[in-house]
Amino acid sequence: MRAILQLLKNIKEKRRMIWDLAWADFRKRFVGSYFGMLWMFIQPLVTIAIYAFIFGPHGFKSTPPVPNVSYTLWLVPGIVPWFFFSEALNTITGILQEYSYLVKKVVFPIELLPVIKLLSCGFVHLFFFLVMLAFYLLSGEAPRFAWMQALYYSFAAGMLALGLGFFTSAINVFFKDMQQIVGILLQFGIWMCPIMYDEALFTKGRPWMSVLFKLNPFYYIVAGYRDSMLTGAPFWMRPQLGFYFWLVTAIFFVLGLCFFRKLRPHFSDVL
């Protein structure tokens, strides 16, 4: 608890610096790139197009569980938060090497570095969130207030990534292969949650599979995003799943932050 209070205090006191560094981190991704910020959209949009083709009406003809909704409309609110989570966790893992010059400064609160990277990824995610809204409007969907509820689930995804990121970034200082391992686990992890496929393919006649899916905390975020964008169901309609998610996320966050702070005195020596 003490570590969390100290982190919140540092965030409050250094909020201007956090914002400036996060914005600078966001901008430097595209420095020297001919197409600049277009690259921010190209790869995820190509990924969505590939999945939509493979599982859509021209491929395996997957039928979404929501009536009168195309596969692409069902896919987008599942994969957009995954892009945010996976990018945030992967980049947070390597943050201490990327900003090693700040780690070596005794006066700099380095537990803010994962927060800075998360905020930088949040800028990218905000663009995708707006693109998702535009896509729904262009598809003929009537706007509804519940769409804004997806921002709550984005915050939830960020907190999960930050909690795990404190742990993985600390490990990565001493074990340089950690970032590659995280990348592989994320490639595997996207299939452990019903993002591209309907979970009924596996749970029909096997109720234990439904429980297994819901043990993945990211299930709550995917289900919540689709509730917000497709059915308009409010977030309090899944109380048990929400309680489980925030309990697991809080455990990851506290343990990850404490682990990070415990190893912090050794970071500058190794880097």
Rank of each mutant, 00 (worst) to 15 (best):
P109A: 02
L164I: 07
L186Q: 02
W23F: 11
W246S: 01
L185Q: 03
M148P: 05
I190P: 10
F218L: 11
I181H: 04
T231N: 05
F84N: 07
F145E: 13
S70D: 13
L73E: 07
K204D: 15
I221K: 03
M40F: 03
F108S: 11
L102E: 07
L255R: 02
G205S: 01
E141Q: 10
F135L: 13
M1L: 14
V76L: 12
A233C: 04
V124H: 06
L89H: 05
V76H: 03
E87F: 04
Y152D: 12
R226N: 13
I184E: 11
G205F: 02
F175M: 14
H125T: 10
M17D: 10
P265W: 01
R27Q: 12
Y34N: 11
F83T: 09
F253Y: 01
Q97W: 10
L133C: 15
F243V: 14
W236L: 11
L118D: 03
M132E: 14
A146E: 12
L119E: 12
R15K: 13
A146S: 14
H58G: 04
Y101N: 12
I48H: 04
V211Q: 15
H125F: 09
M40T: 04
F267V: 00
L21N: 11
T72H: 03
I190Q: 13
R264T: 15
L212Y: 07
V248D: 02
R206Q: 15
D227Q: 12
T72P: 08
A22E: 08
G36V: 08
D198S: 05
F245H: 04
A161H: 08
N10K: 15
L112S: 01
L38F: 06
M17K: 03
L118A: 09
L255F: 03
T168G: 00
W208H: 13
I195M: 02
I79E: 12
M132Q: 14
M40K: 04
G232K: 04
W147F: 12
V69T: 14
D177H: 02
N68A: 15
L75I: 02
K117M: 14
A88Y: 03
F129T: 12
I42P: 04
M178A: 11
L126W: 06
A156L: 14
A88N: 09
D198G: 02
F175H: 11
R27D: 08
R29C: 10
L138I: 09
I18R: 01
Q179W: 03
